[in-house]
């Protein structure tokens, strides 16, 4: 059976995304959570590129670039936040940050 390339790429993207999702759900360490977000973003980017190649247009790849830029910004801000959290609470446990009930 020959699998349609788009289907295969989309399935890979789905599996990667779900793995990231499982990770973010089970982890308590906030750096691991950031890592899981990166996995999920990457999977989403992959899906865009697969779609781009399916239609033969550049839009999916443009979207990938935007996701890349967004990930870079997110990581920088996220790391700064984690740093602050670590200084304030002396831990990386995300549940400790529940004090504000936010």
């Amino acid at each position: 059976m020959i699998v349609h390339p788009t289907t295969a790429g989309m399935l890979l993207a789905g599996v990667l995304f779900v793995l990231g999702l499982i990770s973010i759900l089970v982890r308590r360490d906030i750096i691991f959570m950031l890592l899981s977000v990166e996995i999920m973003l990457n999977a989403a980017g992959l899906a865009f590129v697969v779609a781009s190649s399916h239609w033969g247009t550049a839009d999916g790849q443009v979207m990938f670039i935007f996701i890349l830029a967004m990930a870079a910004a997110e990581v920088s801000v996220g790391l700064a936040l984690i740093l602050q959290l670590y200084h304030q609470l002396k831990t990386l446990d995300s549940d400790e940050a529940a004090k504000m009930n936010g």
């Binding site: 999702l21 759900l25 308590r28 959570m33 995300s94 549940d95 529940a98 504000m100 009930n101």
Partner: peptide
């Protein structure tokens, strides 16, 4: 449900 637990929020989203 508004516990402040990040994982709980993500779970709701999922």
């Amino acid at each position: 449900t508004q516990s402040g637990l990040l994982r709980w929020y993500i779970l709701s989203v999922v």
